[in-house]
Structures are given as C-alpha cells and as structure tokens.
Simulated scan of single mutants.
Amino acid sequence: MSDFWVFGYGSLMWNPGFDHQRAEPALLRGAHRSLCVYSWVHRGTQQRPGLVFGLDNGGACRGIAYQVSGDIWPQVLEYLRAREQTTMVYKEHHHHVELDSGEKVEALVYMVDHGHAQYAGSLPLEEQLEIVRGAVGKSGANPDYVINTAAHLQEMGIPDTGLAWLAERLKA
C-alpha cells in the first residue's frame, strides 16, 4: 500500500498526534492560513466560541507535510476525522503541496466550509483578540493555541504579522 500525505497549518504543525514517517516544511498554493473558524469544541463552546485556524481560499500557506505509511493510513484518517471534523466545519480536499526538498506530493488538507455556521470570515485583529482572550474548550485555552501556533511559525521562519500582533497581546 502506498504512502499518504497530510498538510498541517495550525495545531497539526506542533501537535500532529499521529505516527508519521517524515515531516517536512511545505508550501500549499491556492489557500491561506486564517483565524476564521469559530471553535465550539476544542478552543471554545457554542455559548463562548473561540477562534481557530482554517485554510481559506486564495494565496499560499507554508506548513508541514507529514508522510504516513499506507499500512496505518486508515487509523490515521479515522483519528484526523475525529479531531478535525467534530462539527464538519472543514471539507477534506487533496491538493498538491511542494516540499522544501522540491518534491511535489498530493496531501490531504482541511479547507474551511464557507457555508458552515462556524465560518467567521476575515475579522479585524481587535475582534479576533477579544474572541480568543476568554475562550476555553476541551483541548484547552484559546490563547495557548494562538500563542503556540505563532511560536511555531516564528521557529520555522514564516512571517505572519497579524498573528504575531495577536500573540504579543495575548501574552501580556
């Protein structure tokens, strides 16, 4: 059975939660990382939503591609669906990503569903800050998620001025 690839752009970068053979920085064209999903489970509740990242249309996104052995792919896919599809706010797609080594692979990506009630769209940074500040879900505090993702992007040398702005204010 051949190998499969998964593209991580948010918490999957710093907490994939599944076995993989290789992890390599990668570029996805045609979508960008955006704090555009109201979190009703992992980083907030329906009564007090948080915000998490989604892949939204347009632009490009740097993240990490994980190579998963075909032998364990069914279990990894089951895990990913349980983690990412709790409320079906994402749509599973397969897109070509370019690994930093130059290799092009087809990877599973989770794109935000614009028609879903949890799609927040593009919110002003000040509004994002207020939503994230007090939200907590079953996976923890929303500020921790944003700060961890910002730190990981910084470690990888991926600039995101809006996310850096949010992280600095959340740390204060």
Rank of each mutant, 00 (worst) to 15 (best):
Tyr90Asn: 05
Pro124Phe: 14
His114Asn: 10
Asp113Tyr: 11
Leu55Phe: 10
Leu125Pro: 01
Phe53Cys: 02
Gln85Asp: 06
Glu103Trp: 00
Leu77Cys: 07
Arg83Asp: 03
Glu84Thr: 00
Gly17Leu: 07
Gly63Ile: 00
Lys171Pro: 03
Ala107Pro: 09
Gly54Lys: 04
Gln85Arg: 04
Trp73Glu: 04
Leu170Thr: 01
Gly157Thr: 04
Tyr9Ile: 00
Gly137Met: 05
Ala107Met: 13
Ile72Phe: 05
Ser11Gly: 08
Arg48Leu: 10
Gly121Val: 11
Glu92Phe: 02
Phe7His: 07
Phe4Glu: 11
Gln75Arg: 13
Arg133Phe: 11
Arg62Trp: 10
Gln85Glu: 09
Leu55His: 06
Asp71Gln: 14
Leu77Trp: 15
Thr161Ser: 15
Gly134Asn: 15
Gly10Glu: 08
Met1Asn: 11
Arg83Cys: 02
Leu153Val: 06
Leu51Tyr: 07
Val37Tyr: 03
Met1Gly: 15
Leu27Cys: 09
Glu127Thr: 15
Glu98Ala: 09
Arg22Ile: 00
Phe7Asp: 05
Leu163Val: 08
Gly30Ala: 08
Ser139Lys: 07
Val41Pro: 01
Thr149His: 06
Glu78Ser: 11
Ala120Val: 11
His42Trp: 08
Lys104His: 07
Gly44Met: 08
Gly30Phe: 10
Leu99Cys: 09
Asp160Phe: 00
Val68Met: 09
